[in-house]
Design a protein around this nucleic acid. Structure first.
Length: 326
DNA sequence: GCTGCTTTCCGCCACT
DNA sequence: CTAGTGGCGGAAAGCA
């Protein structure tokens, strides 16, 4: 994926007005600092915007951008950092940006940091895929883009061609993940060491599968109940039992889920069950009936109903589209 | 699709 | 007075 035969791998950072300096800079930091064993830099990082010149940040300074969208046509990887100012619009894409994104070839890797995921979703790049974004924006994201399987519990999601990361600093984890995939653990660890960040944050391989990774600073009230539920997705989960884990009342539990996850407990459970079902559809040959059973849907028809309602396609067609070979 | 039973969701309000 | 909690009940959703 994305390996170039001539010259360096070109990473284009797509900035918009209101861009967050941290998220903009971290891309340059991680890719720009990478060095191969012989000391050569494998990446070239370009910054581009709709027009060259000054681009406002969300702070009291602007950045001077040298490239416009034409730079995207030569990119191997495109990274979209958050820009609160436009990501809060219900449609973050103007026709210029939409055209630039849809012109990207299928071999171009696309990644987002934080609410940059809204841009990818609006461009249709995330339809039917797993993705993540900043947890504070999770509810709005789901409302706007029901076809995307949003998982606000992970640091980042790797869907191959399209990658998304959660808030702010998780962009570092995602960029390191891409470096690791492109050039191996040694090169990625070297960047991490010089940037003084952990080379691989807690969660290990589980992150590649899009499985939940605990976010220490977030959502403390529901954490125990969620962990408990994840252990028994395959069996029926009653709200009274889930609340008893806390322990807390059912009323407080549902309120906490709404406040922290932006959805009801059962909605959250259904989504986790769909995650599991999708993974089994992608990575196993189990019949749909058995997948429904393992994922805690009473029957294949139950799975199918939820699947179609939330992903817009049937389990079987999902499998044919997203089957992982080997 | 219909029916009847069970569970869940959430506003309201009282209690600590 | 505010903040968090949780019981109640009607509407809605889920399920057989």
């Amino acid at each position: 994926m994305g390996e170039v035969t001539t010259g360096r791998h070109r990473v284009a950072v797509l900035v918009r007005h209101g861009v967050r300096p941290l998220e903009l800079g971290l891309v340059h930091q991680i890719f720009g600092q990478a060095r191969l064993g012989d000391g050569t830099a494998p990446y070239e990082v370009l910054t581009c915007a709709a027009r060259t010149g000054a681009v406002r940040t969300d702070s009291d300074f602007a950045v001077h951008v040298e490239h416009d969208y034409a730079a995207l046509t030569t990119a191997d990887t495109v990274v979209v950092p958050a820009s609160q100012e436009t990501d809060e619009d219900d449609d973050p894409l103007d026709h210029e940006l939409r055209a630039a994104l849809s012109a990207l070839g299928p071999e171009v890797r696309v990644a987002s940091v934080c609410t940059g995921a809204f841009v990818l979703a609006a461009a249709g790049l995330l339809d039917g895929r797993r993705a993540t974004t900043h947890w504070l924006s999770a509810e709005r994201f789901r409302t706007l883009y029901p076809r995307v399987r949003l998982d606000p519990d992970v640091l980042y999601v790797d869907e191959g061609r399209v990658l998304t990361s959660a808030g702010e600093a998780s962009g570092i984890d995602l960029c390191l993940h891409m470096v690791r995939g492109d050039h191996g653990v040694a090169v990625a660890n070297d960047v991490a060491r010089r940037t003084v960040v952990p080379p691989h944050r807690a969660g290990g391989q589980a992150q590649f599968l899009g499985r939940p990774v605990p976010e220490p600073q977030v959502a403390t009230t529901t954490a125990a109940a969620r962990a408990w539920a994840l252990e028994r997705l395959h069996e029926p989960i009653a709200l009274t039992d889930l609340a008893a884990v806390g322990p807390m009342s059912v009323r407080t539990l549902t309120r906490a889920f709404r406040a922290e996850l932006g959805m009801s407990p059962t909605e959250w459970i259904v989504q986790r069950r769909l995650d599991l079902a999708c993974e089994l559809l992608e990575r196993s040959d189990l019949p749909v009936e058995q997948i429904a059973d393992r994922a805690g849907f009473g029957s294949a028809s139950g799975l199918r109903k939820h699947f179609v309602a939330r992903l817009g396609i049937a389990p079987r067609s999902y499998r044919t589209t997203f089957r992982v070979r080997g």
